[in-house]
Computed example of a mutant assay.
Amino acid sequence: MSIPVPVLLTLLALSGCHAAALLHTSNLLKESIRLLDELQEAKVSCDKMNVTNVFAGNKQDNDLETLCKATTVAWESRSCHRHLEGIFLNLLRLVQRKSAVYKAPCPVAGGSTTSLNDFLRDLHRALQQLVKGQSLK
């Protein structure tokens, strides 16, 4: 049984697109981690500012939903440091590429807060785990 050439070419093209999408996702994650590293080294004066703690509480959120909520916090905090706008844009692209359900920036409910510095540390940790697992569900 042979596979027709057009079908074979289509399958090859689709596998190439999938590989390119994974590479792009990996690059966005790594770039965000780099920006977070630089931001944490900068020791900005507003790092004690309170932000919504999207990493606490509801453990039912999946990685993508948490990242979507993190885009909101990054957007709301972007006046603190220019790297936060880059982090916001990277997270926004990740969420848009991976989901039609979540429309970043996602609404976040008030509730527990944390310092911007702790949020950035938690986001850094979450992104590192995603790079290791390369899974965004």
Rank of each mutant, 00 (worst) to 15 (best):
E41L: 15
V101T: 10
T114E: 12
A104R: 03
Q96M: 13
H24C: 15
M49H: 11
K48P: 13
H124L: 02
E41N: 13
T66Y: 02
A100T: 13
E65P: 01
R97T: 14
S99M: 00
K30S: 13
A109Q: 12
L94N: 05
L39F: 10
G110A: 11
V54W: 02
V44T: 12
E65R: 04
P105S: 03
Q60G: 07
H83G: 06
G110W: 08
F88P: 00
N62L: 02
R34I: 12
L120S: 05
P105E: 06
Q96V: 13
L39T: 15
A126P: 02
I87M: 10
Q128K: 09
N62H: 03
L39C: 10
R34A: 14
R34V: 12
L123K: 01
L36E: 05
T66P: 03
L67S: 02
C68D: 00
Q40M: 15
R34H: 12
A126F: 07
C46T: 09
A74D: 04
G57R: 08
S26K: 15
S99W: 10
N27H: 15
R125G: 01
G110D: 08
E38P: 08
D122F: 00
P107Q: 06
V44A: 14
S45Q: 10
V95K: 00
K132M: 10
F88L: 01
H24K: 12
L116V: 06
N62M: 03
V44W: 01
Y102G: 04
Y102S: 03
E76K: 13
S77W: 10
Y102P: 00
K103C: 09
S26L: 13
R93Y: 05
A100G: 12
E76M: 14
R78T: 05
T66W: 01
L123M: 07
Q40T: 14
R97N: 14
C80H: 04
P105Y: 14
A109W: 07
D47K: 07
L94G: 04
A42V: 10
H81L: 13
S112K: 10
